[in-house]
């Protein structure tokens, strides 16, 4: 009798559940807001975004979940991740087990070195931001663009519009560059992986 019901039930397949995780200040929450707004502006899918962070302004674990569905979204947080972005080793260690089998893992290889699987997309978002885009601040946008390329969840145009809407004044060019870098690097990576 033990766990009979729990064995039978299934997490609804009509939910696409994504988590962006890192440390406070890396812009994980803002990245998910941009993604949710991009989807809301372009099509009829339902989107819920939620967040969890510590009392610190910077540092400490920070994660943000996005749930996307054609149907009404009841529970606002992820139950079994279809997608996970990790920007720190701490979030890798903490959330990898929430990713379902066959789920997509994207890793910032600048900061995460110990990865418990070979099946992931790794790009050095933080290094690319610092060295290629001109500011470490846009690492989240590079990651977001790469995610769009890898998952096909949102078009480049819609993403660009959503990013520019939320980007602070004076950072538009850096953000546009970040989007270019993210899409290009992810496309290269996909080619290498033969997908």
């Amino acid at each position: 009798m033990a766990n009979k019901l729990l064995d039978k039930v299934e997490i609804p397949q009509d939910r696409y559940e994504m988590r962006f995780s890192g440390s406070g200040g890396q812009g994980m929450i803002l990245a998910t807001v941009m993604l949710a707004e991009a989807i809301g502006a372009t099509d009829d899918r339902n989107v819920v975004q939620s967040q969890s962070y510590g009392p610190e302004a910077r540092g400490g674990a920070s994660k943000s979940d996005v749930v996307i569905s054609a149907n009404e979204i009841f529970y606002p947080k992820a139950m079994q991740l279809d997608f996970l972005l990790v920007m720190t080793q701490e979030s890798m260690d903490k959330y990898y087990s929430d990713l379902k089998e066959g789920g997509i893992l994207v890793v910032d290889t600048t900061l995460v070195t110990d990865i418990p699987t070979d099946n992931y997309y790794g790009l050095p978002f933080t290094r690319l931001a610092r060295e290629e885009a001109g500011h470490i601040m846009v690492a989240n946008v590079i990651a977001l663009a790469a995610i769009a390329e890898i998952t096909g969840i949102i078009s480049k145009d819609a993403l660009t519009a959503a990013v520019l809407k939320r980007a602070p004044k004076g950072t538009e060019e850096k953000n546009k560059k970040a989007i270019e870098i993210g899409f290009a690097e992810a496309a290269k990576l996909k080619k290498q992986k033969g997908s």
């Binding site: 807001v33 949710a36 989807i39 809301g40 899918r45 339902n46 989107v47 819920v48 975004q49 939620s50 967040q51 979204i73 606002p76 947080k77």
Partner: peptide, 9 residues
Amino acid sequence: EVMGHSRQI
């Protein structure tokens, strides 16, 4: 906190 800090379309 969950109500105040989650977003929805």
